[in-house]
């Protein structure tokens, strides 16, 4: 495995939900350290695409190779990929019965087999990085949405992932809290993390993305670097979409 090999490789990926063809012949290569923003209307398959990378969704045709590991039904492979790939959800999905600290140390202790003290030290450093060290002993239900999402990011980072997936991380947040989460994501992008983000925060896309992918009807319609993508869309569907979301 070379450092120049793509870290995520999707070849001819197809997926159906029942009879609904949700991903159609997806071919995508993500290089190490690349930051990709995926956008598109709802139902376009963008979340499904991202969720296939850590096999929260199973694809039926094609190959997905993540960091040299091919995703098959082999549970061992899947767990290995999952521990290398961090994920942040739209609805945070923190564990409500565990404190912030416990949320961030559970997987490192039980999957990575880190000693408890070391896991806590690392979690504390991450909570400082997302700027909420003072909340470590609280329960998720006591935090604001923005704080919860930052904990979720810290929880994912605690596994030292090589790839971070973001599935509409700011869509469930109040307007005033979006920025605090985006700041953390920008900071993460600047540190060289490979990121695959489903988001409609076009400011974020402009600021950090290497590539923007536009999806509709289960297909990748267009992909380009942000500058070209926003100012010079090649496809009329992309143009329509951009005009809809940028007109306000």
């Amino acid at each position: 495995m070379n450092a120049s090999d793509p870290i995520i490789e999707m070849r001819g990926v197809n997926k159906w939900f029942g009879a609904f063809h949700v991903l159609k012949d997806i071919n995508l290569e993500v290089a190490r350290g690349e930051r990709i923003v995926v956008c598109g209307p709802s139902g376009s398959g963008k979340s499904t695409l991202v969720r296939c990378v850590n096999r929260l969704e199973e694809h039926q045709e094609g190959d997905i190779v993540v960091d040299g590991i091919k995703l098959t039904n082999d549970l061992k492979n899947i767990d290995q990929v999952r521990s290398e790939v961090g994920m942040v959800f739209q609805s945070f999905n923190l564990f409500p019965h565990l404190t912030v600290m416990e949320n961030c140390t559970l997987a490192p202790i039980w999957v990575r087999k880190l000693p408890k003290a070391q896991a806590e030290e690392q979690a504390m450093a991450l909570l400082e990085r997302v700027k909420i060290p003072e909340q470590a002993d609280k329960y998720p239900g006591q935090l604001s949405g923005g704080q919860q999402q930052r904990v979720a990011i810290a929880r994912a980072l605690a596994m030292n992932p090589r790839i971070m997936l973001f599935d509409e991380p700011t869509s469930a947040l109040d307007p005033e809290m979006i920025k605090e989460v985006l700041d953390v994501m920008v900071d993460l992008a600047e540190s060289g993390m490979t990121m695959l983000c489903v988001t409609h925060e076009m400011g974020f896309a402009r600021q950090v993305a290497n590539r923007v992918i536009f999806m509709d009807e289960g297909e990748i319609v267009e992909q380009n670097d942000p500058e070209e993508f926003f100012h010079n869309p090649r496809n009329d569907r992309t143009k329509l979409f951009l005009s809809q979301i940028l007109s306000h």
Binding site: R82, S83, F89, V111
Partner: peptide, 23 residues
């Protein structure tokens, strides 16, 4: 228990028994 709890646990690499036992 919402589906998101299963997904979050799975995404962290917790296997079936750890997911059930801890989450």
């Amino acid at each position: 228990i919402p589906k998101g709890q299963y997904e979050a646990a799975a995404a962290l690499g917790l296997g079936y028994w750890k997911m059930m036992g801890f989450i």
